[in-house]
């Protein structure tokens, strides 16, 4: 398998008004094509900086990011974002269908093809009949589904999800986690899922990347050897799940204290 996403020697230093803040020191990791990797770290560990560098929204001080083998210098065409703040990421003046279709208009696609992609994406997140509604008429969980549909319709090589479920209630969150697992298995997309929730990271990921406190390095990479078929009830009470989450938890505590792994 080839690597979909390569981050090598990434460093980001913010300079401003005589203050130098080294947010990210040295990050190197890869995400293989078709892999679902979760990224966790103590709060304020530079996750957002990392994501913005990967998404081409920020220029790293040194190091580089490759998406599908191409170096990122601006927002890469093969990457889609799902943000935490769904309410501010969907455009309230457009109906759901138009929101999903908007990024496709930048691609060279026929109208029929665009329609097909929009319908298919909405269908696969369970919102087939919501195309005519405005985002603000939907619940928070449904709005985040729309954002996911928008990312799916874009047919990205890599899907970046930035704490996408941090702002929805626990039950909706469980549904959305299963949705992400299902879409990942059905469509074989590469997903990098950033979260601060350790359980979520272990439940969702095939691999968990644990980041250190800022200035950030990769504290540890952990393979999640849970079965492919995961289930909110059984997986979460499996002994192996508990071991893994305990391990991740310890690593994050160690990262907070600034100890190496």
């Amino acid at each position: 398998m080839h690597a979909s996403l390569v981050v090598s020697g990434l460093r980001k230093v913010y300079e401003g008004s005589g203050r130098r803040v080294e947010a990210v020191r040295d990050l190197t990791f890869t995400v293989d094509a078709g892999e679902l990797v979760c990224l966790v770290g103590p709060s304020g560990c530079g996750k957002t900086t990392l994501l913005k560098c990967m998404g081409g929204l920020l220029t790293p001080t040194s190091g580089e990011v490759l998406v599908g083998g191409r170096r990122v210098s601006g927002p890469p065409p093969g990457m889609a974002f799902v943000f935490q703040e769904y309410g501010r990421s969907l455009f309230p003046w457009m109906r759901v269908g138009a929101n999903v279709e908007l990024p496709l208009k930048q691609k060279d696609l026929s109208k029929a093809r665009r329609r097909e992609l929009v319908a298919d994406a909405l269908e696969s997140v369970g919102l087939a009949d919501a195309a005519g509604a405005y985002p603000w008429q939907l619940s928070g969980g449904m709005q985040q589904r729309v954002a996911i549909a928008r990312a799916l319709a874009y047919e990205p090589e890599v899907l970046l999800m930035d704490e996408p479920f941090a702002a929805v209630d626990a039950q909706t969150r469980a549904d959305l986690e299963d949705l992400v697992r299902r879409l990942w298995r059905q469509r074989g997309i590469t997903i990098l899922f950033v979260t601060h929730d350790i359980d979520e990271a272990v439940y969702l990921g095939e691999r968990v990347l644990i980041l250190s406190a800022s200035p950030t390095v990769v504290q540890e990479q952990l393979k999640v050897d849970l079965p492919q078929e995961r289930d909110q009830l059984r997986t979460r009470v499996a002994p192996r799940f508990a071991e893994l989450r305990t391990h991740v938890y310890e690593q994050i505590q160690a990262a907070k204290r600034g100890e190496p792994s």
């Binding site: 998404g55 927002p75 990457m79 974002f81 943000f83 501010r88």
Partner: peptide, 14 residues
């Protein structure tokens, strides 16, 4: 214009 909306647009090449 909201910063998240702005970034959303940018990340999708709009």
């Amino acid at each position: 214009v909201d910063s998240v909306m702005s970034e959303t647009a940018r990340s999708y090449g709009i």
